[in-house]
Computed example of a mutant assay.
Amino acid sequence: MKLMDCHTHTQFSVDSEADINKCIKRAAELGLAAYAITDHCECNGWYKKEHYSENEWYLRESFDYAADFENSVSAVTALKEKWAGKLNLICGVELGQIIHDTEAAKIVNADKRVDFIIGSVHQVRGEQDFYFIDYEKMTMDEIYDLLERYFKEAYEVSRTDLFDVFGHITYCLRYMKQRNGINADISRFDDIIAEIFRDLAQNGRGIEINTSGLRQGFGDCFPSLKYVKLFRDMGGEIVTIGSDSHTVEDIAANSADGMEIARAAGFTKLAYFKKRKPYFIDIT
Rank of each mutant, 00 (worst) to 15 (best):
F273R: 02
Y279E: 12
R125W: 08
M4T: 14
F231N: 09
A271K: 06
R188K: 11
L87Y: 05
I193M: 12
Y135E: 07
G213R: 03
G31F: 09
G213F: 07
I196G: 00
T160R: 07
G217S: 10
I192H: 04
N109A: 13
D250H: 15
S72M: 15
S243C: 10
D101G: 01
T77N: 15
F130C: 11
V93R: 00
S158Y: 02
A265S: 11
D250E: 14
K106F: 00
Y47H: 12
G31A: 05
D250Q: 15
A36W: 02
G213T: 06
R263H: 08
Q128R: 12
W46R: 04
T240R: 14
A33D: 02
R215H: 11
D19N: 15
T170Q: 06
A33Q: 00
E81K: 15
F189C: 05
S212P: 08
K25H: 13
H246C: 10
H40M: 11
H40F: 04
R276V: 12
R198Y: 10
K80V: 13
H51Q: 03
A66C: 15
G217L: 08
S120D: 04
F69S: 10
W57F: 11
L32P: 15
D220S: 10
E81H: 12
V108P: 01
M176D: 09
Y227G: 04
E17C: 11
I37Y: 07
Q216H: 12
F218L: 13
T268P: 05
K86S: 14
E249A: 14
K48Q: 04
A154Q: 02
I37T: 04
D220W: 09
V108S: 01
R263A: 13
A75H: 04
A78N: 14
V73C: 15
I193Q: 04
E42T: 07
G213V: 04
D141K: 13
G167D: 09
C221S: 14
R205E: 00
N180T: 01
H40R: 07
R188N: 07
N55T: 05
L79F: 12
